[in-house]
């Protein structure tokens, strides 16, 4: 089991009141699985993904990656895991506009200390894999939405992670691009044998996923 979340709770203080976003989430994901977390906007999908991706800390509960408890790790160790073992795909892409597509893909590798020649070769390979062969030196604002999300996908795979967390990766795309992105994720999962967790409110894109969970009222339930 690559991910095990146990009784994850996340509460936010808002003025005098406390907002309970996650009220004891349990989740188990096997290696290489394609998992979907569905739910309406504001249900806590992003919060859960941020906790699974070690970007945020739960109020309580425990998280295990490959059997190792990670909730108590130091900030430095969490950063290391994020950089080397996880890849993130965000709803609003979160690419750096001053860099080219190629440089954006190179960025996680540069942060990981991979030599420039090697990271350039790997970035080119990844951009080719997401069918952006002729867009290496394009600035982000010169790309279409679908192309931007493909750059984000290539970046997520840059450091050969074992887990990809995709938060609403198709939210800003049209139907054709949505399907293309999901197909691309499926293809890359197969090629690279990674575990992918996708959060979405769109049930159309999660057909044929290995597991589908619904996040409702702060609880996660398997969807049949």
């Amino acid at each position: 089991m690559i991910i095990k979340a146990s009784k994850i709770k996340k509460y936010y203080q808002s003025g005098q009141s406390i907002i309970k976003v996650l009220k004891g989430v349990d989740l188990q994901v096997e290696e290489g699985e394609l998992t979907a977390i569905v739910g309406p906007s504001g249900s806590g999908k992003t919060t859960l993904l941020n906790i699974l991706g070690l970007l945020d800390n739960p109020t309580s509960g425990e998280l295990f990656l490959n059997g190792k408890k990670v909730t108590t790790l130091s900030d430095k160790e969490k950063r290391k895991i994020r950089l080397h073992r996880m890849g993130f795909i965000f709803q609003n892409f979160n690419l750096i506009s001053s860099l080219t597509a190629l440089e954006n893909v190179e960025l996680p590798m540069a942060l990981a200390g991979i030599p420039s020649k090697e990271r350039r070769q790997r970035a080119i390979k990844l951009l080719k894999a997401v069918k952006l062969d002729n867009k290496f030196n394009s600035k982000i604002h010169e790309l279409s939405m679908g192309e931007i999300q493909r750059v984000a996908i290539a970046r997520a795979f840059a450091n050969n992670p074992s887990i990809i967390l995709a938060d609403e990766p198709t939210a800003q795309l049209d139907y054709e691009n949505k399907m293309n992105i999901i197909e691309l994720l499926r293809k890359l999962r197969k090629e690279k044998n990674v575990t992918i967790i996708v959060s979405t409110h769109d049930l159309n894109i999660v057909k044929n996923f290995d597991k589908i969970y619904e996040l409702k009222n702060g609880k996660l339930m398997a969807k049949t």
């Binding site: 430095k76 950063r79 996680p108 942060l111």
Partner: peptide, 10 residues
Amino acid sequence: AIIDSIGAAK
């Protein structure tokens, strides 16, 4: 913040 979320060291 993007670079931070990717996992850059402090």
